[in-house]
C-alpha cells in the first residue's frame, strides 16, 4: 500500500508541474488560437536565468522564480509584438512556423552562449530535501512546485472568470471583432495573454533548477507533454489543463511502475489519443 501511495503521490506532483507548464500554453492557445512552439524554450530560458542567478549571486530558485516569471513575461510580450502580431489574420501555419523558428533560435543561442553542458545548481534551499509522511517520501522541491502550480492556476482562473480583464480576454477569445466593437483593445489583450502565458512557464522554469539539470534541450519533452495536457484538457480551459495534467502525471507514474518504466510515455500518449478520439474538444473545451 505504501508503494501504491508513493507512486500516486509522485504522479500527482509531476502532474502539478505539467499543469504549471501547460497553463500558459492553454491561455495562449485558447485565446489566440496560436500554438506556441517556443513554449519549451521559454521554460529553458527561465531555467538558465534561475541557474545563473543562483550560480553567480547565490539567489535561490525560490526567489529566482519571480525573476523567471517577470523575464519570460517580457519575452512573451516581445514575442507577440515582434513575431506573432505579424501573423495574426494569416494562415494558422504562419504563427506555428514563426514560433518554431523562435524555438530554434532560443535553443541555439543558449547552445552557443552556454554550451551543451548540463548545469546543476548545488546547495539550494530545497535541493535534495525530503520529508517522510506516514512512510511516503515527499520531495520538497516538487511539493513546492506543486503548491505554486495550484496557487497560480487558481489566480489565473480568478483572473479569467472574475475580473473585467478576464471577461475581456474571454470575449476576445470568443469573437475578436465583436470584442473590438465593444471597445476592447484586443491588441493589448493578446500582448497581455502572451506575456501571462510566458510568466507561468517562467515561474516553473525558475523553480526547476532546484532539482533538475539545466541544458539547451531541457524544454523539449516538457513542451510536448504540455501540448498534450492542453489538448486533452480542452483549448483555453485552465481547470481542464489542470485535470489533464494530473491525469497524465498519474498515468505516467502508474504505467511506469506497474507496467514498465519504458511504457510510461506510451501510456500518456495513448490516453491522449483515446480522449481526443472520444471527445475531440478535450475534457473542458469551449
Amino acid at each position: 500500500m505504501a508503494t501504491f501511495l508513493q507512486v500516486a503521490f509522485d504522479g500527482l506532483l509531476n502532474g502539478l508541474l505539467y499543469a504549471l507548464v501547460a497553463a500558459g500554453l492553454s491561455l495562449i492557445w485558447g485565446v489566440m488560437d496560436v500554438i506556441n512552439f517556443a513554449h519549451g524554450e521559454f521554460l529553458m530560458v527561465a531555467m538558465y536565468l534561475s541557474y545563473w542567478l543562483g550560480f553567480i549571486w547565490k539567489v535561490d530558485p525560490l526567489v529566482s522564480s519571480v525573476a523567471g516569471g517577470a523575464f519570460v513575461f517580457i519575452l512573451g510580450a516581445l514575442t507577440y509584438r515582434l513575431v506573432i502580431s505579424r501573423t495574426i489574420g494569416k494562415s494558422a501555419m504562419s504563427a506555428l512556423l514563426a514560433t518554431f523558428g523562435l524555438s530554434m533560435l532560443l535553443k541555439n543561442v543558449c547552445l552557443n552562449r552556454f554550451s551543451p553542458n548540463f548545469r546543476i545548481l548545488q546547495h539550494t534551499l530545497l535541493g535534495g530535501k525530503t520529508f517522510n509522511l506516514a512512510g511516503i517520501i515527499i520531495p520538497l522541491p516538487q511539493l513546492v512546485i506543486g503548491l505554486v502550480a495550484l496557487a497560480l492556476l487558481y489566480l489565473i482562473y480568478l483572473l479569467v472568470k472574475k475580473t473585467r480583464l478576464g471577461w475581456a480576454i474571454q470575449a476576445t477569445a470568443m469573437d475578436k471583432e465583436a470584442a473590438e466593437l465593444m471597445g476592447i483593445n484586443t491588441e493589448r489583450i493578446y500582448l497581455l495573454v502572451f506575456g501571462l502565458g510566458g510568466a507561468c512557464v517562467g515561474i516553473a522554469g525558475g523553480l526547476l533548477p532546484s532539482y533538475l539539470a539545466v541544458h539547451p534541450e531541457v524544454g523539449g519533452l516538457f513542451s510536448l507533454i504540455a501540448f498534450v495536457c492542453v489538448a486533452m484538457g480542452g483549448f483555453g480551459s485552465i481547470p481542464g489543463a489542470l485535470l489533464a495534467s494530473l491525469l497524465i502525471g498519474l498515468v505516467e507514474a502508474f504505467a511506469g511502475f506497474y507496467i514498465a518504466p519504458v511504457f510510461k510515455y506510451v501510456a500518456v500518449f495513448g490516453l491522449y489519443l483515446v480522449v481526443v478520439m472520444v471527445r475531440p474538444r478535450g475534457l473542458f473545451g469551449w
Partner: peptide, 17 residues
C-alpha cells in the same frame, strides 16, 4: 530490468521499480 526513454522529465518510476 529497467529501461527508460532518454531525456525523460523524471525517473521516479524507474528508481521506484
Amino acid at each position: 530490468d529497467v529501461a527508460f526513454n532518454p531525456g525523460a522529465t523524471n525517473l521516479n518510476s524507474e528508481v521506484q521499480t
